[in-house]
Design a protein around this nucleic acid. Structure first.
Lengths: 231, 231
DNA sequence: GTCTATAGGCTGATAGAC
DNA sequence: GTCTATCAGCCTATAGAC
């Protein structure tokens, strides 16, 4: 780490650092860690190869800096939701909005994190793992609150978290490819669904899907699905 | 393509083909296309490097053969669900089961497909895309059936498909990493949730989350989430 | 079918001039 | 801070012996 500041604004004469970060972020998301070569990253940033070693100390440290930046942005947004006293369904909707906000602000973040997880998560150090744990902790907290307040049925927080994160990460990480395939007419879909529509869809799906059944058994239809208690 | 048959059983003296397929499948899932070298694939299959070119005509054709195998297995399972006359909620549950069956049979399939999508889907030819389109077509068909039969509310099939596929693919593709992190005590979770539990969770979540509201407005709680109609 | 040897290119890192 | 030159290592593909 040669520069003294970590997340500081680019000072004059060090424009290449920020440019490299931006270029590398896009390329890691699109091609993966091995697929994005230092040469391509530097050339997209219109900067010399050697700048990667100079500013970050190598490809791997550049990659880790990108992971850190994304997870810190998420953590910051989730902290707001965490300190928010709202009914559980509303807080869960806020969680979805927070994730979508980060994914909109840093479009490459979901794809990079997803790839990191697929690759075994070997670049995740203690700090990064604690950020991920914190995200799950918030979901669990919200679920438990909802169950306590009788607005949610007694779902498993782990399963709920996995399903929610999965649907969010997949939507955002696959958006570029989906857009490409749609614009080339290779998917029988008119246009890429807007982010807001998807966010609302997931919010509604989760809210309705987690809602506790009414206390006096109302005529809630059950269509052939054998619903059994877990464990 | 030197051998005359594509998905035939291994004939004596050509054991290396099947071994290579198996080894490559695992490595592509774990390390990605660029991350899995022909050398490592061959060495894991205990076979000479040159066998990749001999049996498949190169790394890329080996990779495409793996994609094809997975998507064909999925298509086969989904065909059963497609030709099944059941109520929509039951059929949607069957879709989830079919996907889980493929993911259990070919553990590396979800991760490979996910990586392929993240990378832009450039290896997907017409046939492979039609298999993916068929999967979406089935979900859309089920959703439309449910809306017609008044068991589902009027959700967008595209959004529903994306959310469902996302939660399924993510769970299966991230399972190895999750298991590793749990066993190393780096995730504050006791143990990896069993597949059956997750399948049931998603089935319940989808069924309840898509259920049409009762016709005479029963006291269905709405906890602060502003539910608005799409578009 | 299997293997060795080799070709030709790309990789990431760095020493050292400016 | 930036750049050039260069290193050793790895990559895929293939010709040709067996």
């Amino acid at each position: 780490m040669k520069s003294s500041r970590n997340a500081s604004g680019p000072r004059p004469g060090a424009a290449s650092r920020a440019t490299l970060l931006a270029a590398a972020t896009r390329l890691f998301a699109q091609y993966g860690y091995e697929g994005a070569s230092v040469e391509r990253i530097a050339s997209r940033a219109k900067v010399n190869r050697a700048m990667v070693s100079y500013h970050f100390g190598g490809k791997q440290k550049l990659y880790r800096a990108i992971l850190r930046r994304g997870l810190e942005a998420l953590e910051q947004r989730l902290a707001v939701v965490r300190s928010c006293a709202n009914p559980a369904p509303r807080r869960l909707a806020q969680f979805v909005e927070a994730f979508a906000a980060v994914a909109t602000e840093q479009v490459s973040f979901p794809a990079i994190m997803l790839r990191e997880v697929l690759s075994g998560g070997h670049h995740l150090d203690g700090i990064l793992l604690s950020h991920m744990a914190a995200a799950f902790g918030l979901v669990r907290e919200i679920i438990e609150q909802g169950v306590r307040e009788r607005s949610f049925r007694a779902v498993d927080p782990v399963l709920t978290h996995l399903g929610l994160i999965g649907s969010l990460v997949f939507y955002f990480a696959s958006a570029p490819t989906r857009s490409r395939l749609i614009s080339e007419g290779k998917l029988a879909v008119r246009s890429e669904p807007p982010i807001g529509d998807y966010v609302r869809h997931i919010q509604e799906l989760m809210t309705l899907g987690l809602t506790a059944p009414a206390l006096n058994p109302s005529p809630r239809r059950n269509h052939g699905l054998k619903v059994s208690r877990r464990r």
